[in-house]
Design a protein around this nucleic acid. Structure first.
Lengths: 336, 336
DNA sequence: CGGATCTGTCGAAACGCTTCGATTGATTGC
DNA sequence: GCAATCAATCGAAGCGTTTCGACAGATCCG
């Protein structure tokens, strides 16, 4: 395969000239640049990645620590992974995918071997073993999500508290006084994932602030459990007129199906709101108002920060993406 | 960060001795090996990935070409991606994730820059632009899936034809004479994804062979379309007693929900079989018999072949994974 | 008991790039 | 009109490995 020497020879210049012509780090004569580019084209030249890493002190690779825990919704996870990969390419970065099988060791491995310039950490839990490791590793790292102790870290995340508050506000605004939250899989809360807890706590707090009655139940994808959760939410307090779904797509579909089966008319009998969903709620029956969780919203800035941090250290921060509301008519004033 | 020089100094040997002690490519005195290992431990040494690539002609990275087309089910896709990543780690390989945004150019880029030793290609379509590129690139590559023209390629895939035949056989065996197939999203067939077509064709052929009546309809995840597909399948031919679902989890859930809504008792009125599903069908209502599509079944061999091919070229082949049947009681003889 | 063989180790040459400092003309400023 | 500046280019020194060939000393065998 063609090396920089071949390009230099064909263009009739030295290899350093080729390097500068391609990197643009020094000024180069117009005709020279053209000859170099022609030679590159003709030979199908691509700089050897290893050589570039060795000499350039930059790998142009980001590690993506994307464990897939049980309880995490695959489509959402996939969407975040793809979003990071796309965003990275925009910065001329590739993404090395790290699963959780090695635990935090994988991170250590790629950082210590200088395989990657930085790390994007997904699916952050409250007590995340990766936090301390990364603190000690001194590698540019961005957390998509916020661990309990975020001191010294750079984090980007949807503002789940604001989203929860917003969902309560919306229901309150049209007159609901008794509302309920169908939350994520219990496995997620158990694992200490931060966002379900933050959402739930903010939801209950916002409801309490407004003197509203508020219920909470969790459900994994098993329809029996969804049924049971809905029972506990709607059964015990027959006055519930507003339901917020903070779960994955499958559970939301199942829940809506169960409610329809039971003859609950939505939104007439029950206003429903899908919160922090990274999927479209338009094709639901009925289409649901939503506070969308758009992967790009957090992943694009996360990657940008990572790339920036590769160049020069940046100050620790927690960047929260404000929620926004998309109406589809599923939240209306309660009947009577 | 510690380099091999530091290790050599601390262990009191030359760098080549360190290299050989760590690689095991030449015999090393016992005491030397111990001192080297101690030094490595103490310094937290890890070979510089770039230097290793440059000198060693091996990157220990596989590219994973995992486009995410519309119509492809994210959970299934995710499962394959994760399976490849895990399998790769078993061979001491990392995985570089390539999305489809660059088209085939990304493959070319990483291959030409010798960033990766080989490529795993997912989500293969009949006329896949990546096929010709890879033929010309002369890079170890394994296709998970089979393109129309597989000459010269190494492919691994579930045997979808056998799976389709098996599902027909099972229904025939208990006495069904009129069956139907609910297929994937039309987008998938349009895109020329091989497996939905192969499954459908084999399904219809197997039914014809046995003199059975067989219907076919497609549906994406929109419940309205699922409803319509079921109408066309079950409505026009009221004698259908066996239904095969070859779709993603969401559609299967939706379909079962619709059938229940309509008062169809399963399996009494309708035997249902979930084919080539990469998710659990046990928690469905009712739990479905399935011919599971296990990502590891194809990804583990695919990675093994890729790694093998990095060492020495291997003969082109198409390796088809035989299907197996897992019963949950959803297929029974037709009523009356 | 002297050449052949083996074991354990070392030095040095790649590997292909980036980047620093030097060099050569041409241009500028005063 | 001469020093200072600038644009364009080159040579060479790394970057941190792997690996080849060499070599010293121990072991073997006839």
């Amino acid at each position: 395969m063609a090396s920089i020497h071949d390009v230099a020879r064909l263009a009739g210049v030295s290899i350093s000239t080729v390097s500068y012509a391609l990197s643009g780090k020094r000024s180069i004569g117009e005709s020279t640049r053209i000859r170099v580019n022609d030679a590159v084209e003709k030979l199908g030249y691509r700089a050897h990645a290893g050589a570039r890493m060795l000499a350039g002190e930059r790998t142009h690779i980001l590690a993506l620590a994307a464990p897939l825990h049980s309880g995490t919704s695959e489509p959402a996870h996939m969407a975040f992974v793809m979003s990071v990969a796309r965003a990275a390419r925009e910065h001329d970065y590739d993404v090395l995918l790290l699963t959780q099988d090695e635990g935090a060791d994988g991170l250590q491995r790629v950082a210590l071997s200088r395989l990657v310039d930085g790390i994007i950490v997904l699916d952050v839990s409250d007590q995340d073993e990766r936090v301390d490791l990364i603190r000690s590793l001194d590698v540019p790292a961005i957390f998509v999500g916020v661990p309990r102790d975020s001191a010294g870290l750079v984090c980007v995340d949807m503002d789940f508290e604001a989203a929860a508050t917003m969902s309560v506000e919306r229901l309150a605004a049209v007159g609901h006084r008794s509302i309920a939250l169908l939350g994520q899989s219990p496995a997620l809360y158990d694992r200490g994932s931060g966002f379900p807890r933050r959402f739930r706590d903010a939801f209950l707090a916002a409801a309490a602030d407004r003197g509203m009655a508020a219920g909470f139940a969790m459900a994994d994808r098993d329809p029996a459990n969804v049924r049971q959760a809905l029972d506990s939410l709607l059964g015990t307090d027959p006055g519930v007129t507003g339901l917020v779904l903070h779960t994955d797509e499958g559970v939301q579909t199942t829940a809506l199906g169960i409610l329809r089966e039971r003859g609950v008319r939505m939104p007439h009998d029950l206003s429903v709101l899908s919160a922090c969903s990274s999927f479209s709620t338009e094709h639901f029956e009925p289409p649901l108002d939503t506070i969308p969780l758009v992967p790009d919203d957090s992943c694009v800035p996360a990657v940008a920060l990572a790339v920036q941090q590769v160049g020069a250290p940046i100050a620790p921060r927690v960047e929260l993406i404000p929620p926004r509301y998309v109406g589809h008519g599923s939240v209306v004033p309660p009947a009577a």
